[in-house]
Design a protein around this nucleic acid. Structure first.
Lengths: 264, 264
DNA sequence: CGCTGCCTTGACACGCCTCAACGAGCGTGG
DNA sequence: CCACGCTCGTTGAGGCGTGTCAAGGCAGCG
């Protein structure tokens, strides 16, 4: 059985059988983490690096005034804190949203990989570069996309990422977030999240009930969000879809007709 | 004479003399780039990796509707596109803001470094991790800090980063940006940037004339912005400054008394 | 059964945007 | 040398997107 982690690394570099052997040996030591607990806290300097095997977690920071900003979602195969192996101290916290199964990898193991398994080192680096690309796209979303498109963009991204690890169907996935958490992700208040969500429903773009997000028209949602998955560097993308005519601004949603959210 | 680049890498890992020799050999081939031209464009897959030796550049993306978001400023010692060595295609563009002097490093050289100079590889990785930390902090700023604090935070960050490469005095530095570019950085309109800037001036926190930013009270600006430089991972930071009492919200600026911006 | 956490709704305030006009500085060409 | 045009900064008026506060509904659960 293949492991989401090794699977993911294969994206980043060509691994040899011995690389793979080394990796599956590493992944054997797992631990459970409870929902709503912190995996790591800002300022810590843990001796192990952690990796999500199962569950959902997020990176976040809390400001002096109590405001929280979520900066990334971590899904199976994602590293929590590769940073600490290189940087030392954590500059943000990581919280488990659901119960998680994680692997703990001693720092020395990482050092060993860096020194003696250059292809694995390359793959690890690849992981952090993809994270960085995602962060850039989130920054674009926050800075220059209105709330509805920003939320749509997030949904598109999660769909693609979760599909890549077999955790989403063609058009739906579990999204165990509260509206408040969504707000802390998008830089919005929970109240406004609620209203934007209703607008997306009214447009029959998505339905979100019982922590399940169903995208009613994937193509249309992607167009609405201006979603281009290139930043996820998943490879084998469809033709670059160059659109010569500078597409006009997508119509804003107007929250006109309230729609009941019936999940089929 | 030491080079800003090698200087910076020394932060990230302990280098041997031969590492350093290899690096200074690499840095010998430089090129000039004109202000306002693109160093690299989204979608390209250049054969060289570029590194800023002198000047100011920025990462940015342009949305279909023409909006631009600047996602990072690149100062001497920063890599433009280490990405492409690992990821292949650029997922964003890089533009020169001033005239720049850059080094071009063939991809194969990077590959060679990764394979045979693990300490350098580590240092390179360190660079991208610091970039990532910066990106996270920008995301926090956009999502959860009001415009005035966000701008103050950017100024604090630039001060510290530029000081680290000897391009800033104790309290001022060149900032060759227009207000529109500042707006594209902060996710604001140029008009609003103008007003926020006036508010910061009225509070006697900064002065910004002739492309020179002078911080009138560094300590107060840092407090106002809630600036904690830990995410830059520059090391040798002052005592962690743990503030036990959950500091109350800093007063918002009210743009009351207009102030003439006299740079001394 | 009554809590409690989460979603929903309305009213109102405010931050920020857009549009529009004008002014200051500066390089260029007549 | 001056007139012109350009870019950039500044200001005002009005509107929209989003936040805050507050109240109520609904479902899950002990």
């Amino acid at each position: 059985m293949t492991n989401p982690f090794i699977n993911k690394l294969e994206h980043g570099a060509k691994l040899t059988p011995e690389d793979r052997a080394k990796l599956s040996e590493i992944v054997s030591r797992t631990r459970r983490v409870e929902a709503r607990s912190d995996l790591i806290h800002e300022g810590e300097n843990p001796s192990d690096v952690r990796l999500i095997l199962d569950g959902l977690a997020c990176r976040y920071k809390v400001l002096p005034n109590g405001a929280r900003q979520i900066m990334a979602y971590l899904i199976p195969g994602d590293f929590c804190d590769l940073h600490v192996a290189i940087l030392g101290e954590m500059d943000h916290s990581i919280g488990a949203i659901t119960d998680c199964r994680v692997v703990e990898i001693p720092r020395e193991t990482i050092d060993e990989l860096l020194e003696f398994h250059p292809r694995v080192a390359r793959a690890l680096w690849w992981c952090t570069l993809v994270d960085e690309g995602t962060l850039r796209e989130w920054l674009v979303s926050m800075g220059r996309r209105p709330a509805d498109q920003q939320m749509a963009h997030l949904f598109c991204e999660l769909l693609v990422r979760l599909q890549a690890v077999g955790q989403a169907t063609e058009d739906s996935f579990d999204l165990p977030l509260t509206q408040e958490e969504l707000g802390d992700t998008l830089g919005l208040s929970a109240v406004h999240v609620n209203r934007v969500l209703q607008a997306l429903r009214a447009e029959r773009l998505v339905s979100f009930r019982h922590k399940t997000l169903k995208i009613l028209d994937v193509q249309r949602l992607k167009e609405f969000a201006g979603f281009n998955p290139n930043y996820l560097h998943l490879g084998r993308k469809p033709p670059p879809a160059i659109q010569k005519n500078p597409r006009s601004v997508p119509p804003r949603l107007t929250g006109s007709t309230p729609i009941e959210d019936v999940a089929s």
